[in-house]
Design a protein around this nucleic acid. Sequence first.
DNA 1: CTAAAAGCTGACGTTGACGTCAGAGGCAAG
DNA 2: CTTGCCTCTGACGTCAACGTCAGCTTTTAG
Lengths: 122, 122
Amino acid sequence: MRIGELAARASVSVRALRYYEEQNLLTAERSPSGQRHYPDSAVDRVQLIQQLYAAGLTSRTIVDLLPSFETGEVWATTLDRLSAEQKRVNRKIGELLGIRDRLDVIITKATEAKIAGRSCRD
Amino acid sequence: MRIGELAARASVSVRALRYYEEQNLLTAERSPSGQRHYPDSAVDRVQLIQQLYAAGLTSRTIVDLLPSFETGEVWATTLDRLSAEQKRVNRKIGELLGIRDRLDVIITKATEAKIAGRSCRD
DNA sequence: CTAAAAGCTGACGTTGACGTCAGAGGCAAG
DNA sequence: CTTGCCTCTGACGTCAACGTCAGCTTTTAG
């Protein structure tokens, strides 16, 4: 498929895909005229990249760790980085859970007050 | 306390504290000479701000929602935004849990392979 | 055949949360 | 008093992941 279809299927912009290629996160065959062509598997790869970005990894980190994600093979120096990211992600999950709880408390309280007919200052 | 001590106690930079003030997230008494002075409670407030940033909220959002966090009172329009952020945070938690699982799988597999004496390509 | 749609390569713009530097003033210790 | 650290206010710099625009070529639909 060409870049536009991949963008649509993976729900990212065309620009983002070119950027991923620039960062060596994604490669493409080229047609004689220079257009990029991707296999179907590229959709999954792009979505994985997006998830890793969302998890707070940088391009540089992703390019190093992506092979491990896709092949399952890991060599020692990479294992350390994987563990480091795992710790980071776990810390972040903890932070987010904390915030979620605080949001729950506030929202629950406010909703109960509303149900009880109190003003909520609106 | 003055700005340097607050920065140390809340583990943020002095610059960040001035930035928070600029964004109306934090206020300070001023000494006659113009130096900022903070109450002890500012430490908690700054840490809360940090957590909210870490949860992906922007300054603009935080300045709107911070009163709700501190007073527990909420009025209707704010409640919607709180719910929106709650959804965002929940989605992000889900993403992170997914990534964590993938990291767990890879790391576990690699570690077992190592224990079993296989090469891991190092 | 032709016009619209899609793709290409630069290259500059954007946004948010600060970092950093300059230049000047304030404050406790010796 | 002066030395050394802290603080002040601008104001420009940074970094990452793209957005956007220009100018041009390729592909597709009618």
